[in-house]
Design a binder for these strands. Structure first.
Lengths: 348, 348
DNA sequence: CTGAAAGCGCTTACAG
DNA sequence: CTGAAAGCGCTTACAG
């Protein structure tokens, strides 16, 4: 009895030698079996109210928390998902990550984070992923066919975030980049724009390709001039491409269609700072993504806002469903972006 | 023999019923003991070259990877560290995270990510952290004394990133916010500025407090006017504080000292867009952090650049040291920021 | 250098 | 509802 009082006074020193309490310690303390302790921490397990109280008190006294590692080993479910995200893809990165965390937290699932410097790191990262018996993978990174198959062979559910695999049966949530860009460009055409510079992202980005194609397809036949500038989603390259176009371009554009907001901001800054161009009267500029900075006073970009909240929710749901039922067929969900009209371009 | 050939042709189907190969499977296949397999995957363990080859071939054939969960359970080292990071603290967030990932990866340590919406979530998050037997914690979030003690009691090494605990014996790496701000302000004074508006961050942020104090302490006695504006590190509040100051302020400031870059950008945009103020001739604006966007053409902020790379490296090293030697005393490392002179303020 | 054996802390049939 | 027991896949003394 005395010992118990002491233990209660110092929850975490209740265990001698500073070790963490195990389910056996709790069982001994509560006077029940170890199985009973285990059941008490398993939602829905059959356990009497009396036993539950005893166990809960003992657990509180000893500062017991089930060891998730041991649980993962025996149950085959780690309650960990791997999130693979390519660095600097866009400024939405922090938001996506924190939304993912919130959604997964609600289901008591943790995130093992893997950031990739470039797409070629996927192999290296996947090797680490296998070791941790993750229950699933969210990938905001480009996989090869072989990498996708490796996940299938291991029966690890995989959901892509904003990556496009037209040829493969993989699950993904994606903004409708093509349609969003098409709609944006159409608004520019309607407003009378005819000479377009379309600034694309990295050549190996399927997302950039979709956006670029959405623009170019719509423009063909309607615009008098179209030129494609090869960007890389970065601010600084956007600045220099804008300069090239303005100084050495084959025609004077009346619209810059940038396939992400960052490039649009670079373009805008360059036009105003170095060419004294009036935006949007002389030249219209549009972006894509709907990042926070695009709404700032100085930019106020006309852009396509990705419905992040819904996309993340969808990705999480799709993954959870497939963790529970691995036989579910792959599914691709496409979300329309919302056009936000700022002052960098007028749409009609 | 036939069976082995088949297995080699289809590494991952080598295991029947689609289960992952274990060390026992590899041992059987290689004709050695399970202990031998284990040793083969433990760096530095004594194992003959012959055995190693046999095991490695068998492992490759069966697609074997040690199960990190099981390893963690028996060895008491999960090779996982928890990273706690308060959302939207600043735009450095993605960079810090990806640098942390890179450094930890090199030591074969994974990151369990926890993002916090607000500081009050720390308790909730720590409860999850305990369950995962993490080897250590990096915290870019404010802890209470009780939360710090909880880590100590559990003997989990803890290193703070850019959080200040003058009163507590905790390990931390921190930019020298106070000194950085002081130096910045001194440059403004030397250049002849005398009427200062100092825009602080959230009241509960120790970092903001340090920066603000660095500025105010230096200004007292030297400036003719000082006013402190209570911001929250956000762009939009910075805009409206700037408006208030310009329209209803008790004096016309010739310098805005913003305690982070985002607010400086809001301030700058507001001054130029709404007040046609010439920066820096009429009014100087300085920020703090050295985020990427601060270098953009339109901003080109004079600011204090935090040495992220070195700070992250230090945090990782300090944590690793303490994982290996928990008895190491706490240590606080303070890094000087680099003043970057942009065109938003001239310093002398 | 090698193998047999114990054990990390749980979950989960199984029998009562 | 409850407890005894097996077992998840490893590491690590221990004896050879």
């Amino acid at each position: 009895m005395d010992k118990q009082m002491t233990a209660k006074a110092h929850p975490l020193t209740a265990m001698p030698d500073g070790k963490r309490a195990t389910s056996y310690d709790v069982a001994r303390f509560a006077g029940v079996s170890q199985s009973a302790v285990s059941r008490c921490f398993k939602p829905g397990a059959s356990i009497s109210a009396k036993t539950r109280v005893k166990v809960e008190q003992a657990a509180a006294t000893l500062g017991y928390q089930p060891n998730a590692i041991a649980r993962g080993l025996i149950s085959g479910r780690s309650n960990i998902v791997a999130v693979l995200i390519t660095e600097l893809t866009n400024l939405n990165y922090p938001q996506v990550l924190s939304k993912l965390h919130r959604k997964f937290s609600e289901c008591d699932i943790r995130i093992l984070l893997f950031t990739l410097d470039n797409e070629s790191d996927v192999d290296t990262v996947l090797d680490k992923v296998w070791q941790y018996q993750v229950d699933g993978i969210i990938a905001a990174a480009q996989f090869t066919e072989a990498q996708i198959n490796a996940c299938k062979e291991r029966a690890i559910p995989l959901v892509f975030y904003n990556r496009i695999y037209p040829q493969s049966t993989v699950s993904s949530v994606c903004c409708d980049h093509r349609e969003g860009e098409r709609a944006l460009v159409e608004g520019l055409l309607n407003q009378g724009r005819r000479a377009f510079a379309v600034m694309s992202g990295p050549v190996d980005s399927a997302v950039s390709a979709a956006r670029t194609q959405g623009a170019v397809d719509r423009l063909k036949g309607s615009a008098t001039h179209i030129v494609e500038l090869e960007g890389d989603y970065s601010y600084w390259l956007a600045c220099s491409l804008t300069r090239q176009m303005m100084t050495h371009g084959e025609f004077k554009p009346d619209a810059f269609v940038c396939t992400n907001d960052i490039m649009a901001m670079g373009c805008l800054d360059t036009l105003r700072t170095e060419y004294q161009v009036a935006v949007p009267s002389d030249i219209a500029v549009v972006g894509f993504d709907g990042v926070e900075a695009a709404t700032w006073l100085n930019y106020d970009l006309t852009t396509v806002v990705q419905p992040l909240e819904r996309m993340v929710q969808a990705a999480v749901n799709m993954l959870l469903e497939r963790i529970d039922a691995p036989e579910l067929p792959a599914e691709k969900r496409l979300f329309s972006g919302d056009i936000r009209q700022g002052s960098s371009a007028v749409l009609l």
